[in-house]
Design a protein around this nucleic acid. Sequence first.
DNA 1: CCTACCGATCGGTAGG
DNA 2: CCTACCGATCGGTAGG
Lengths: 163, 163
Amino acid sequence: MRELADAVGVEAPSLYNHIGSKAEILQQICFQIAGEFTSQMDQACSVSGSKLTILESILRFHIRMMLDKFDEVFVANHEWKSLKDPDLSNFLNQRRNYEKKLISLVEEGIRMGELRQADAHVAVMTLLSAVRGLEFWQHHKKNIDVQTLEDEMVTHLLKGIVK
Amino acid sequence: MRELADAVGVEAPSLYNHIGSKAEILQQICFQIAGEFTSQMDQACSVSGSKLTILESILRFHIRMMLDKFDEVFVANHEWKSLKDPDLSNFLNQRRNYEKKLISLVEEGIRMGELRQADAHVAVMTLLSAVRGLEFWQHHKKNIDVQTLEDEMVTHLLKGIVK
DNA sequence: CCTACCGATCGGTAGG
DNA sequence: CCTACCGATCGGTAGG
């Protein structure tokens, strides 16, 4: 809070004329980000097209979120653990739901023959892990064109690296 | 430190008869883990075989490390930022070197026609991100056989999910 | 190995 | 918006 106050140019206690608590800021960030992911997923699923196309658009959204709203996504990904309990369960439910929808999507893709026979659960977790890992790229991100990064990553995750 | 002391069954200050500082424990964990990864990489690269085979064995090692030595790897992955400066640069150099070797390996694989034409840099970061993301699986890990998880994840990362 | 305690940090309140 | 200050926490030291 002291750092934040410094950045804004006031003393730390003055912040409390504008916010209720540090926890409240956390809560807002977490649910704003969760909401963006959830609504994009719903939108992506509502368009007609192959399951693969939908999956790809979701992947691309994740990557763009990691690049465009790094700080907020980072906080939502890490600090949600500090949410207090109506919020905590709420957040976890939303996330679990999100993962379930993604798993269903992959399962349907497999059933329709668009996707390889695979463990949908592991596939989804692998995809989510990979895009989330953009967190750690730091200096690497700066040396490469954003669109190339997105395209290469999506291709790798969908088609692999083996010839 | 108080938690640690509790777990061991002594008072917090007593710990300092056995360790120099909290920072020293961090340093030991970071370099032990870094060493394991580095030496496995060297070993894997020294055996004859396709670049793809080598890459796969490295991937499998990462996954197994994430599952078998979760806590240490977690600390090495996150808390290295608190290392002080001869150690910090040392650690970062070791990691950068590791990534470079991996990138070279992928580049050679591409050159030899074993791997698809791809951005080796993005490919390696995608692979590392994905395996590292096992950090976040938590409850998911418990519902699946470890060997299946390893096999499915490796297959996904190497061959993708598209049919 | 313990008790006693320090100095820094942190989220936050009181009171104006 | 500020000054003054609180209570909890944390890594660690002194002294036995």
